[in-house]
Design a protein around this nucleic acid. Structure first.
Lengths: 260, 260
DNA sequence: TTTGAAATGGGGGATTCACCTCATTCAGCC
DNA sequence: GGCTGAATGAGGTGAATCCCCCATTTCAAA
């Protein structure tokens, strides 16, 4: 009971958009399922695997398709790409329909992001191995993915051989995070030292709201917002709104394309 | 003479990094060369073309290589990829060495960006047709590329058929900007209403510097910086640093990955 | 049960920001 | 020569920021 409450708190302010899209009670259900043991081991003897590819760039999808279906790259494994998706919703639909052995996923996609697709895949097709192949390096997103239980995590900026070599192991139930990302996680100095409330207020600050506006929005005193702001800046070692926003950008906390 | 001076002014503060890397007098020389007529017509009868691919993601390079070398995609044209580059400097080196018929280029690359590679290519291999294939949509970068005289401009977010279909025409001396980007250029409201100095100060503001720091950096009074800041915000119709940064991000004036 | 972390709020002060008005210099243009 | 636009700089005002001080309450962990 207490652990459920804690989990609830952990998810509450993680990323605002995520909470708005599917609701955080729903999210808790997903985490319950995700923590249940998976039965991927029964596929040990199979030689043919199905895959779904989700990336907003067609050139990446076609490149991945060629690479995955060429057994000389992914050694000894016969992989067939049964569906491609150019956005998050299409990816979720494809997973529901095909329930593939693996899903290769980008993080930044239109309509629904990689994290949403990951948790929805766990819900509708828990046996699907989810491999995230992305160009981002923002610490926030990376830790989100790992906490959500991604099975494989590879960077587009690195040599693809790392991906091809580890696909068989992941298909057999293994889990692999590329050194590119583990070093990002290791080098995170204070990472998630921010409290839920601080994270929430950071989102409103970078949205361009003043202390007064934030206080009205949250129904608390402007002085309290100021208090949180001070703690925030001390923790992150920045000394102005501009630096605060620059930090948030690097960590992927805000969406550059979002309107003010 | 007057037009040359005007061009000089246009380039002076376009993007600070660009000016720092190669110097703006050098840039003017490149523009002179770029405006000179090209002699690509002599290749009308050739059946084999050489290409260099530059993209920081290996999966995109391999996908492009497969697509370009498949004559069913690029109809009737035999294209051979003679070199690949994962960053801007490698791309420039490859162009110098191979002087290819075409260069397929991404905009956001490590070490040197797509615009720098484009102007350097014009300098060292003026006959090379430069095709930019990118995922960005920031108005600033797009207009920069068009002004620099890119031969083809295609979006990764759109259907790749548009690229494949137009490569032969571009190889024969044509020029093609995808509708995806022309609509971005058309919808630009006021674009370059900012003066050179204002653009420069905007860059320092979004870098997190205070008026005092900026005044010290530029050797002018803090009051003058304040003056520019006020004009800046009036022109862009924003009322806080946060909104200012959000604007700069949308227009691609700053690099989200840059350190403070 | 104590301890501590987190959220809440208040007072105050130094600094900076945002936005006025006004003036000068210097370049290019008709 | 006069005009315009850009850059420069001064003075001032009200608001907001940044950072101290202080306190209470709640809740979970030791």
């Amino acid at each position: 009971m207490t652990s459920a409450k804690k989990r609830k708190a952990d998810l509450q302010y993680g990323v605002i958009t995520l909470r708005n899209v599917i609701g955080y009670n729903h999210l808790c259900d997903i985490v319950e399922q995700e923590n249940a043991p998976r039965q991927a081991e029964q596929k040990f003897e199979m030689s043919h695997f199905t895959a779904v590819i989700a990336d907003d760039h067609a050139i990446v999808r076609s490149g991945l398709k060629v690479a995955l279906e060429n057994e000389r790259l992914v050694d000894g494994h016969n992989i067939g790409v049964v569906a491609e998706a150019g956005n998050g919703l299409d990816a979720i639909a494809a997973v529901k329909q095909h329930r593939p052995d693996m899903l290769v996923l980008d993080v930044s996609m239109p309509v629904a992001g990689g994290v949403e697709v990951l948790v929805e895949t766990r819900r509708w097709s828990p046996d699907t191995r989810v491999i995230v192949f992305t160009g981002i390096s923002a610490m926030g997103k990376v830790s989100e993915l790992v906490e959500a239980g991604v099975d494989g995590l590879f960077s587009k900026a690195e040599d693809n051989q790392d991906l091809y070599r580890n696909v068989p192991m992941i298909l057999q139930g293994g889990r692999y995070i590329s050194p590119f990302f583990t070093s990002i996680l290791d080098n995170a100095p204070q990472q998630s030292v921010l409290t839920d409330r601080e994270r929430q207020i950071l989102n409103l600050i970078v949205a361009g709201q003043s202390n007064k506006e934030i206080s009205a929005h949250l129904g608390i005193s402007a002085k309290t917002v100021d208090r949180h702001r001070t703690n925030l800046m001390q923790k992150l070692d920045v000394h102005s709104v501009a630096q605060l926003i620059a930090y948030s950008l690097r960590e992927g906390l805000i969406d550059p394309a979002a309107e003010i």
